[in-house]
């Protein structure tokens, strides 16, 4: 393989990885930014999204239709979770939701094992996605390009939603001055629920697009949860732009590290996090809001 082929491969792979990390992390960040809830079950919701995608496709649904339906199912699950375990402790310290969502993580993982078992699952892809595309001397899998495209569409959709729609503007306003939002006659209960559902939609999308990238297994959410923590910590808690920067930085570093020193890849990523936090304790862009 030529040098350019390797370079193109590495760049595309880091974009794919960064994109998935970003979608999961932004979901986590939106929930935190609005409700000050650090949802430790977020990784499990991502896994649930992957399994939902798997089951939908296995029962005959088109992959792209599953990509739309699965996230909505996860949003419904999210709304129930929010109502049942987050709302009752909303006014208490963050420790309550940390413990409760930690428990929820094990509950969801157990549920996944109960319904789908321990063996890894694979999402059946449409024929064209199983091809490769010759790009600059490398043969790049089409499903990875589709993943990349989906990430881009999801991010642009999210930006337009937050930037242009009234609901999106309410979410942004509520992330900075929630009290004033309620003083404009807007029920913050719905804002919190909406933010949670939005976070879950993103986890669901990430789950379905990761299906073909990684194997679907009951613990796939754990590593993703940790990685998305790394993303939002490096990017700055609550900051969306910071998350974008951090996700692609980690995507690149992790891909490079995997290429050169496979076994130490994650160690290198964590070392980078430690280094960044040592010099910028509040993350690359500081604690932020949605813009």
């Amino acid at each position: 393989m030529s040098f350019t082929a390797i370079a193109v491969d590495i760049i595309l792979n880091s974009l794919v990885l960064g994109g998935v990390l970003l979608i999961v992390a932004i979901g986590l960040n939106i929930i935190y930014g609005l409700s000050r809830v650090m949802n430790l079950a977020h990784g499990s919701l991502y896994a649930l999204g992957a399994y939902a995608g798997f089951t939908l496709v296995a029962s005959g649904l088109n992959y792209f239709a599953a990509l739309l339906v699965a996230p909505l199912l996860i949003a419904v699950v999210g709304l129930i979770i929010e109502r049942v375990i987050i709302v009752p402790v909303r006014k208490r310290s963050i420790v309550y939701t940390l413990i409760l969502t930690y428990g929820l993580m094990f509950f969801l993982d157990g549920l996944i094992k109960y319904f789908w078992g321990n063996e890894p699952r694979f999402i059946e892809l449409p024929q064209f996605m199983r091809q490769t595309l010759p790009i600059a001397g490398t043969h790049y899998p089409v499903f990875r390009l589709v993943t990349l495209l989906t990430t881009a569409v999801a991010m642009i959709g999210l930006m337009l939603f937050l930037g242009k729609t009234k609901l999106g503007i309410i979410l942004r306003a509520a992330s900075s001055i929630p009290e004033m939002v309620s003083c404009m006659g807007i029920n913050m209960t719905f804002v919190h629920a909406g933010a949670f559902a939005l976070g879950c939609v993103l986890a669901g999308i990430a789950g379905v697009i990761s299906g073909p990238l990684y194997t679907i297994d009951p613990i796939m959410g754990h590593e993703m949860l940790i990685s998305s923590f790394v993303v939002i910590v490096i990017g700055g808690l609550g900051s969306l732009r910071g998350a974008v920067l951090a996700a692609f930085l980690i995507g690149l570093v992790q891909t490079l590290a995997e290429f050169f020193v496979t076994d130490l890849a994650m160690v290198i990523v964590y070392m980078m996090m430690a280094l960044i936090l040592a010099f910028m304790p509040r993350g690359l862009l500081g604690e932020g809001r949605f813009e």
Partner: peptide, 24 residues
């Protein structure tokens, strides 16, 4: 009553801090 419900009775609030939403 919760604030949003009180406000819907027809109250306009201008807080001392002004509370203009940043980034908006």
């Amino acid at each position: 009553w919760p604030p949003h419900k009180v406000v819907r009775k027809g109250i306009g609030y201008v807080p001392a801090e002004r509370h203009i939403f940043p980034g908006i």
